[in-house]
């Protein structure tokens, strides 16, 4: 059994997720929500005090992986194969950004994920993502 809430301190405290300051927010049977807190080091340019696109990509990648584990109900090693992010608008000034990803389909070797990033209103996203992850050495689910 994979519990995103319980696993988050371990998954998000070190390395790149830790450097970004990613934190767990919420989850469901096939989705996970993380938050990327605003800070000056993550700014994309000097003009607007908004989070750069790179950290948003990282958060969505991470939330996508965790959504796969939530969907599979266990941890399986996965590697992102292909990921696309459409940046609809800049995040608000000094705004934290929330990333919510859903794993909507798994096969023997692949997992399909879609998600959004927003800064408070999920109906007005900052970005949308679509990604395919490959499982490494084992199916994510018995199918």
């Amino acid at each position: 059994m994979f519990d995103p809430a319980a696993a988050s301190p371990f998954l998000l405290s070190g390395g790149h997720p830790g450097w970004l300051g990613l934190a767990y927010r919420d989850h469901g049977p096939d989705w996970v929500e993380l938050v990327l807190p605003w800070r000056e080091e993550l700014m994309g340019d000097d003009v607007r005090r908004v989070i750069a696109s790179g950290p948003i990509f990282s958060m969505l990648d991470m939330a996508g992986g965790m959504a796969i584990w939530a969907h599979a109900q266990r941890f399986v090693p996965v590697a992102t194969l292909d990921m696309r992010v459409d940046y609809q608008r800049p995040a608000g000034e000094r705004a934290d950004v929330i990333g919510r990803c859903e794993c909507y389909r798994t096969t023997r070797s692949a997992a399909f994920v879609r998600g959004i990033a927003h800064d408070g209103d999920p109906d007005d996203p900052v970005a949308t993502m679509a990604a395919v992850y490959m499982t490494i050495g084992g199916a994510p689910k018995n199918d």
Binding site: H16, P55, F57, S58, M62, A79
Partner: peptide, 8 residues
């Protein structure tokens, strides 16, 4: 590498 760092 984290994929996010690579893409960054």
């Amino acid at each position: 590498f984290h994929g996010g760092a690579t893409s960054g």
